[in-house]
């Protein structure tokens, strides 16, 4: 082997740079053992790079002892750092998971509260409706009471007759306003297909005039019915008539009768 030629090829410089293949490296390592010139050349090349790198060096800023201290606890420190960084990762994930759960929980709560509000609002509306109904009912009752207490009112008691001796009724007659309020609470419920009809009566000769029907008797709560009465009535009678009423009273079905007292 021509050592000088081998040296001149420049391969030893590349060997020092560490950029040759494993095979080439091994070959040169063997040559270096075999040929002192090659080894010397390698060391000279290395020395030039050592000098160059040393001239570019900012110097060593630590002591060898501090380096060894770092090495001795270094493994642990590094692994602890790693562990804490992975712990941080876990904590991060856990925190975001908690946040997600929290957000979902709050969303649910919000939905529930919204539906609660809706229910309460509905209840509120219905209560307001009840109050309004009660108010209007009270108003009606007071109106009725006022009507009955009016000084122009003439109260006529209608007594039970042969058909229904226990029946009774009252007529509150306001002559001025030509109105009669019939309180029919003392009458039994009319059978299906029948209706009570109120008559104004002249006594001599007996002349009945229909004042109207007590419609929707069953459903009417206070059983007070307002009727117009422009007649010079001397008595009031209530008969049970087929639905729709009759032209003239069916006297066999006269439930109550009362005479207007001369005032």
């Amino acid at each position: 082997m021509d050592v000088q030629k081998y040296i001149a090829s420049g391969i030893l410089e590349l060997y020092v740079a560490g950029i040759l293949s494993d095979k080439e490296n091994l070959e040169i390592a063997n040559y270096a053992k075999e040929y002192p010139e090659i080894k010397k050349e390698i060391e000279a090349i290395e020395a030039s790079i050592l000098t160059l790198s040393k001239k570019a060096s900012p110097g060593v800023s630590y002591t060898f002892q501090s380096l060894m201290d770092r090495i001795n606890k270094g493994g642990k420190v590094i692994s602890m750092n790693k562990r804490s960084s992975s712990a941080m990762t876990y904590i991060g994930w856990a925190a975001s998971l908690l946040l997600a759960i929290g957000l979902f929980f709050m969303y649910q709560q919000n939905q529930e509260l919204k539906s609660n509000i809706e229910v309460v609002e509905q209840q509120n509306t219905s209560l307001e409706q009840q109050i309004a109904d009660t108010d209007s009912s009270l108003e009606k009752t007071q109106e009725l009471l006022n009507t009955i207490r009016d000084k122009d009112i003439n109260v006529i008691a209608l007594g039970g007759q042969t058909v229904s001796p226990t029946s009774y009724a009252k007529a509150y007659w306001n002559k001025k306003e030509e109105k009669v309020y019939i309180d029919a609470k003392g009458l039994p419920e009319p059978p299906d297909g029948f209706v009570y009809q109120v008559w104004s009566l002249k006594l001599s000769p007996l002349t009945p005039t229909s004042m109207g029907l007590l419609e929707d008797f069953t459903t009417d709560e206070n059983k007070v019915f307002a009727l117009n009465n422009p007649n010079e009535s001397e008595a009031f009678g209530i008969t049970l008539e087929p639905a729709g009423g009759s032209e003239s009273p069916t006297l066999e079905q006269l439930y109550t009768l009362g005479v207007v007292s001369a005032s």
Binding site: Y15, V16, A17, G18, A29, E46
Partner: peptide, 8 residues
């Protein structure tokens, strides 16, 4: 050492 110099 068969793969190169220690410094390398």
């Amino acid at each position: 050492s068969s793969k190169g110099r220690f410094f390398t």
